Amino acid sequence: MPPLLNSPIEPTQFAPNGMIVEVVKLQTIHHMNLKRIFGAILTILGTAGLIYTAFTFTNESAGVKEMIVFGVLGLIFFLSGIGLVKTTKDEG
């Protein structure tokens, strides 16, 4: 029998002991879908930052500097996530 190390893996092939070996191919995440997932995560984080800013603003439970930092970061995350989801083309 030829050595298995140098031969390409087929969906079904025989092992050295004569048993049939089934090889399962794993489906990978496409690059475009990964960008969309990252965009969705950024959008969710940005929304959470904006909601936290609004919450602290209404309750006056944080300083002005903290509200500005969370608000600006939330806005940046939100807009970049929306932009990433919007400009990524669908594959599949």
Score class of each variant (00 low, 15 high):
residue 39 G to R: 07
residue 61 S to M: 10
residue 86 K to M: 10
residue 64 V to Y: 05
residue 65 K to I: 03
residue 15 A to W: 06
residue 14 F to R: 08
residue 53 T to Q: 08
residue 55 F to P: 00
residue 52 Y to V: 00
residue 92 G to N: 08
residue 17 N to F: 04
residue 79 L to Y: 09
residue 76 I to V: 14
residue 61 S to T: 09
residue 45 L to P: 01
residue 51 I to P: 02
residue 74 G to V: 01
residue 80 S to Y: 09
residue 34 L to A: 15
residue 16 P to N: 08
residue 67 M to V: 00
residue 64 V to S: 09
residue 88 T to I: 04
residue 25 K to Y: 05
residue 3 P to I: 03
residue 8 P to F: 07
residue 24 V to G: 03
residue 86 K to R: 11
residue 45 L to R: 02
residue 68 I to K: 02
residue 11 P to A: 06
residue 83 G to Y: 10
residue 45 L to W: 03
residue 76 I to L: 15
residue 21 V to Q: 13
residue 65 K to F: 11
residue 69 V to Q: 12
residue 10 E to Q: 10
residue 66 E to R: 07
residue 66 E to K: 11
residue 33 N to I: 00
residue 49 G to F: 04
residue 1 M to T: 01
residue 85 V to T: 08
residue 20 I to E: 12
residue 16 P to T: 03
residue 80 S to F: 13
residue 19 M to K: 11
residue 27 Q to S: 10
residue 12 T to L: 13
residue 69 V to P: 03
residue 19 M to E: 14
residue 70 F to C: 11
residue 52 Y to M: 08
residue 32 M to T: 06
residue 12 T to P: 00
residue 74 G to N: 05
residue 13 Q to R: 06
residue 84 L to F: 04
residue 65 K to T: 03
residue 71 G to P: 04
residue 53 T to V: 01
residue 24 V to L: 08
residue 44 I to Y: 11
residue 85 V to P: 02
residue 27 Q to H: 06
residue 27 Q to M: 05
